[in-house]
Write a protein that binds this DNA or RNA. Sequence first.
RNA 1: CGGGGCGUGGCGCAGUCCGGUAGCGCACCUGCUUUGGGAGCAGGGGGUCCCCGGUUCGAAUCCGGGCGCCCCGACCA
Length: 486
Amino acid sequence: MADDKKLTPRSEDFATWYNEVVQRAELADYSPVRGSMVIRPWGYGIWENMQRALDDMFKETGHENAYFPLLIPMSFIEKEKEHVEGFAPELAVVTQAGGKELEEPYVIRPTSETIIYSMYAKWVQSYRDLPILMNQWANVMRWEMRTRLFLRTAEFLWQEGHTAHATAQEAEEETLMILGLYRTFMEDWIGMPPITGLKSESEKFAGAVRSYSCEALMQDNKALQAGTSHFLGQNFAKQFDLKFQSEAGQEEYAWNTSWGVSTRLIGGLVMTHGDDSGLIVPPRLAPIQVVIVPILKGDDPSAVLEKVDEVAGRLKAAGVRVKIDARDNLSPGAKYYEWERKGVPFRLEIGPKDLEKGSVALARRVVPDGAKRKSFLPEAQAVAEMPDLLEAFQSELRDAAKARREENTVRGVKSLEELEEALDGGAGFVFTGWNGEPAVEDAVKERTKATIRCLPGDEFRSAETPSKCVSGSGDSVTEVAWARAY
RNA sequence: CGGGGCGUGGCGCAGUCCGGUAGCGCACCUGCUUUGGGAGCAGGGGGUCCCCGGUUCGAAUCCGGGCGCCCCGACCA
């Protein structure tokens, strides 16, 4: 008999492990539509918690939500040259509606810069109308050749922020502020600490002047671009006539930024924290933080169920998201495996023995070295300490991920041979000098499949600034972080 | 688009080479006994064998043509 209860171990086949976790933790499932997935309640619940946290952060920094159409006139996409070149191959186009051929085709938005800035142009006359700070929660579609659950789907959910400013400096400050906001969110909520920095010219967003990104390191040591923030300059403003009259009375084009994170973050969460038993959800994002499994013995389960209700009520009052799993068709062990697979941080078991002793059994989803998975403690203590236990669990996940990122980062690499050796030896990020030439990126990619993930920001740079380019030709003009990427 | 693997009850698979009217495990339903790490026994329900065409008395199986999915590559915020 094939044992289909166990997951493929990460060490055996990371890609298969990932697919199994996503499906068996009920995050998502394949749909009848090519490349599009169904996000199931457990996955969507995590996304809702991400949305809530991010939305609060956007509002705190002065942004408002709005909504723009799904369909964008083809001519809009074509206005910005680099933009259309970047997106043309992956557009889905609507040519018919109402039983008739459309006069002008619509594209299903791959991103909304064009339609949003066309509207901003209507709304802005004076510098007094700026800045405009808007965000949209939406779905977008990009017809990718090869898709993977959450990491690259044809349709995905995201937020896209779009701002317009009177000066380049203000727009640049916005771009970097959002980059920092994303980083904080990834560290404090997902427990997935990224490195951040500027994209190289070849990797920047189609239509941007500069792109910044958050790059997180997964357990297989591949990098995941987890969020981007773009300084668009006046590229779109000029094409969509987004002008304003300045304080000095001059007519000027506005300066734009755009920035986004998507449901890809859920894929990042899985590959950052998951283990061979399944998913592990950071407490702040977990739809259920504590599951209570009643142990029902003998003829009369009512006393245990009453106690379970009472404990759940007190945990809820303390702000903890609790679920009672009182299904009577499953044994306790089967429930344990299920909730562990789904990544719930803590489990409480309450049975007849606990009623006698006033205790509960507390099991952790992640067991620290040398500790035991289960501990037995007084009920009052378990309830009182739970909020702190959840926060401690959250921090442990983040710290472990950060430690893993640093352990797998190699600095001070000075030649292509060393770079290749490091990557083949399983390194994640490899820091080197770079002369700024795209030819070096091509050569490295050809040889190692790694790309420049970013030109790291101040605090991620090495103590010793590299002086020579990793290619051996010329001086380094900047340090760069290389990695194989998703 | 190139290479590889695969389409058979909800899931995972066997059966295909060698044609004979579909089977196993899990899941599901009913009953009883159970429940502190994937419960047991008994009974039961469920399948256009991816699609179209051909060969044949007869096709999951043979032949031809499609379609779809997964992995690796190429490509891609």
